[in-house]
Amino acid sequence: MKYLEIIIRPERYTATKEALAAGRFYSAITFDVLGRGKKACHYALHDAAEREEEQFSIPFLCKKFIGIYALDEEVEEIISIVKSVNSTGSEGDGKIFVYALEEATRISNGMTGEDALV
């Protein structure tokens, strides 16, 4: 069993969710997060009154977080789906982290292990 942390651009969230559902991956945890990679992000602002350009760095950008618990054999397919929707070749497309999941228990009926995921 694995746990995938997927961090993507917010504007790609709906397409990602739809692509995962089409691949029969329905269960996920999602929320808005703030973050950034190694590189600072630079933006230009234009003051309407003075028409001067000012550059500054914003330390964090809005991103979407998707957490998915998956069977080992599903991981590569999930990664492929996420990459197909989110890869633009530009910095900031996101990241996918995969962790080993030691145990899972479904609270409602006590099922454990892989049975708790499916």
Rank of each mutant, 00 (worst) to 15 (best):
S27A: 15
K63Y: 11
T16Y: 02
E91K: 08
F65Q: 13
A44H: 14
Y13T: 05
L45K: 15
Q55E: 15
T88M: 02
R36Q: 09
T30Y: 04
S80L: 03
E91A: 14
L61R: 10
S87G: 07
I81K: 00
A70Q: 07
G94A: 01
R36F: 08
S80H: 13
R106V: 05
V98R: 02
L61E: 11
A104D: 07
Y26C: 02
E91S: 12
S87T: 07
T112E: 13
E74T: 06
G35Y: 14
Y99A: 05
T14P: 00
D93S: 08
L101C: 04
D47Q: 10
I107V: 06
Y13M: 06
L34M: 15
E18W: 00
A28Q: 07
D72I: 07
A100I: 08
I66Y: 02
E5G: 01
E74Q: 15
R12H: 09
P10F: 03
F31H: 11
T105H: 10
K64S: 09
R24G: 00
K38Y: 12
S87R: 14
T16V: 04
K17N: 13
G35V: 15
A49W: 03
Y13H: 11
L45Y: 09
T30V: 13
R9W: 00
Y69T: 05
A49T: 11
S84P: 01
